[in-house]
Simulated assay, not measured.
Amino acid sequence: MTQIKTAPQDDLNVKTVAERRAGNRNGRPWTAVERHKLRGLIERGLPASTIARTLRRPLASITDMATSLGLLFNSE
């Protein structure tokens, strides 16, 4: 039998889900003012999609930052 050689994972630049979610995803960094606005909008009970449009950020970015800040969206 012939053995197939594979490259080590480090050489493939493969990132795990946790590595992709850590920090930002090649977007612009969050400012303290944006984090403050995010917190306030969530506390007002606005849905994530509305907050994403208001802050002009992707929905995934909004939910990721909310999670990292320990904030939960109202599910009414």
Score class of each variant (00 low, 15 high):
residue 1 M to N: 11
residue 2 T to P: 15
residue 2 T to D: 12
residue 3 Q to S: 04
residue 3 Q to A: 07
residue 3 Q to T: 15
residue 3 Q to E: 13
residue 4 I to T: 15
residue 5 K to W: 12
residue 5 K to R: 12
residue 5 K to L: 13
residue 6 T to C: 08
residue 6 T to N: 11
residue 6 T to P: 02
residue 7 A to C: 04
residue 8 P to F: 05
residue 8 P to K: 06
residue 9 Q to T: 13
residue 10 D to M: 00
residue 11 D to G: 15
residue 11 D to I: 12
residue 13 N to K: 08
residue 14 V to D: 06
residue 14 V to H: 06
residue 15 K to M: 09
residue 15 K to C: 02
residue 15 K to P: 03
residue 15 K to I: 10
residue 15 K to S: 07
residue 16 T to D: 00
residue 16 T to E: 02
residue 17 V to W: 05
residue 17 V to I: 13
residue 18 A to E: 15
residue 18 A to C: 02
residue 20 R to V: 13
residue 21 R to D: 11
residue 21 R to T: 11
residue 22 A to M: 08
residue 23 G to C: 02
residue 24 N to T: 14
residue 24 N to G: 07
residue 25 R to P: 08
residue 25 R to E: 12
residue 26 N to L: 06
residue 27 G to F: 06
residue 27 G to R: 08
residue 29 P to V: 14
residue 30 W to M: 07
residue 30 W to I: 09
residue 30 W to P: 05
residue 31 T to H: 01
residue 31 T to G: 02
residue 31 T to R: 02
residue 31 T to N: 03
residue 32 A to M: 09
residue 33 V to R: 07
residue 34 E to F: 04
residue 36 H to E: 10
residue 36 H to R: 05
residue 36 H to M: 04
residue 37 K to Y: 13
residue 37 K to C: 10
residue 38 L to N: 03
residue 39 R to D: 13
residue 39 R to P: 00
residue 39 R to E: 15
residue 40 G to V: 04
residue 40 G to I: 02
residue 42 I to L: 02
residue 43 E to N: 07
residue 43 E to R: 10
residue 44 R to H: 11
residue 45 G to P: 00
residue 45 G to H: 00
residue 45 G to S: 01
residue 45 G to Q: 01
residue 46 L to P: 00
residue 47 P to G: 00
residue 47 P to T: 01
residue 50 T to F: 05
residue 50 T to S: 14
residue 50 T to Q: 13
residue 50 T to W: 06
residue 51 I to S: 00
residue 51 I to K: 00
residue 52 A to S: 12
residue 52 A to V: 07
residue 53 R to I: 05
residue 54 T to I: 08
residue 55 L to S: 06
residue 55 L to C: 07
residue 55 L to N: 05
residue 55 L to H: 05
residue 56 R to K: 14
residue 56 R to N: 14
residue 57 R to C: 10
residue 57 R to L: 10
residue 58 P to E: 13
residue 58 P to F: 03
residue 58 P to C: 05
residue 60 A to W: 08
residue 60 A to S: 13
residue 61 S to A: 15
residue 61 S to C: 08
residue 62 I to G: 04
residue 62 I to W: 03
residue 63 T to P: 00
residue 64 D to A: 06
residue 64 D to V: 03
residue 65 M to T: 15
residue 67 T to Y: 09
residue 67 T to G: 05
residue 68 S to F: 10
residue 68 S to I: 12
residue 70 G to D: 10
residue 70 G to A: 08
residue 70 G to M: 07
residue 72 L to C: 04
residue 73 F to S: 01
residue 74 N to K: 14
residue 75 S to A: 12
residue 75 S to C: 06
residue 76 E to K: 03
residue 76 E to C: 00
